[in-house]
Design a binder for these strands. Structure first.
Lengths: 248, 248
DNA sequence: CGTTACGTTGACTCCCGTCAAGATCCGTGG
DNA sequence: CCACGGATCTTGACGGGAGTCAACGTAACG
């Protein structure tokens, strides 16, 4: 069973690739041991649901590898993506027994899960975890509010360029590449997912991508491979201050 | 000086009107005494700025009375409101030295301020405060994400009816009135502020209010006094599930 | 190949923003 | 008391940006 096999690849906290960024990052050796007692790994393939809004929340988790997303759907089917979960991000909320959003794997994903009740006890008894969770929650809050600005006030073109800049920078720094003109990367998400993230339809996303290509802001190979010949040109289209002030 | 006079009205934590809801709500007697040592009160009149984005964050604070709002403005002037701060809500973020959003009083407001450095130390040393701050941050995160759904996917009419339902319920429960058909209340914010909250222009807000009035969903006296003859009718226009599932 | 998922493009519609003109309310001062 | 000015709100005309519906390409994969 792949789930178990994959889990075993990640069984030691001290070797974990998110050891210094996740909710456990400020735990000392003793606290880590207590966490190891209540943790277990689960894997989900791209596209699989992880939790549904309204479900009982049996566990909370850290993303170890891959990516997932939070979303919510209106009764008539309109969907809005509410968050992107990358390695070290935390899923779930101690102190609440129902899941608040749909959670879905968008790449193959491995989670480090903790049963909720024992984890809640640990949050109460080990300040390090609570403090780290607080800092992470406040970061997420900033991201959510930045996104509110984008959803409420930016044009389709600005939304797309913001997303391209965001993803480009993330991938570049992840691969330890410099963020300079000529930056090149693969879009990890489909046009549909872009639209769900940005509050746009797939057609509008596609048209804006074409327009940006024709205007020389981006170069496109296939539909996923993006090159940004001039970063300043791209940033000038985002509606933000051209200098710094990045989203995440 | 009104600031001092007003401050003295609120000088004892144990008598404070937000004693059991604010960041200090789970503090024991001892912890409260330590907080009292580092707290001070400040008042701002409606319309006054409280903090500017990018400023040094000298203090964090709880809203004691009145209301304030968080917002951010794009270089070209487009403004998006990012949060509404009511009594017991917390302003600022321990662990960060720059203010992330503009904060402005929208009604006369009194803050219970803590100098940031001593407060950060208290967060680290008194688990109760950190835990409470975590719970409050997670609540705010839920509100922000609910608002992302609204900003990204809802129509102008849905946005307006959501806001009316939200404010109506808040005011009714605040005044200990039942939330039933015939609910009547004063809008605490201008058409402009509604637009800033909802990601709409003032003209669209006004037109939608007129349309809702003509459709019999709401009754309006002056421009601020609202009556909702049939709550179910209003909720049916919000795009949400008609039953429960309220925003805050 | 054919099938299927994904992406692009076009034609059209309509919601909402923009610009402009009135209407209403309210505090101030003659 | 009324006149005036300013802020707030409403309404109209108009245009554009994004959604909708539909058709067509393109790539991946059996």
């Amino acid at each position: 069973m792949t789930i178990i096999r994959k889990g075993q690849e990640f069984s030691s906290c001290s070797e974990c690739n998110i050891r210094y960024r996740a909710v456990c990052s400020t735990c000392d050796h003793d606290e880590l041991r207590r966490l190891e007692d209540i943790k277990y790994y689960r894997s989900f393939e791209a596209g699989q649901p992880i939790m549904f809004e309204g479900d009982e929340m049996h566990f909370v988790a850290s993303v170890v590898t891959g990516a997932a997303r939070l979303s919510r759907t209106l009764p008539d089917g309109r969907l809005q993506m509410l968050g992107l979960l990358l390695p070290s991000d935390f899923i779930g909320r101690p102190g609440r027994d129902k899941v608040a959003y749909d959670v879905e794997a968008i790449q193959d994903v491995t989670l480090c899960c903790f049963r909720r009740k024992p984890f809640e006890q640990m949050v109460e008894t080990t300040p390090h975890i609570g403090q780290r969770l607080l800092a992470m929650s406040l970061d997420e809050l900033d991201v959510a509010r930045e996104w509110m600005m984008l959803l409420g006030r930016k044009t389709a073109r600005e939304k797309i360029t913001c997303l391209l800049a965001l993803i480009g920078q993330r991938i570049a720094t992840l691969h330890l590449q410099p963020v300079t003109d000529g930056l090149s990367f693969e879009m990890p998400i489909s046009r549909e997912a872009m639209g769900e993230y940005l509050g746009l339809t797939i057609e509008t996303v596609s048209r804006q991508m074409t327009a940006l290509r024709k205007d020389g802001i981006i170069e496109v190979k296939g539909s996923r491979s993006i090159t940004i010949p001039d970063l300043a040109d791209l940033m000038a289209e985002t509606g933000d201050d051209t200098d710094g002030g990045m989203l995440i």
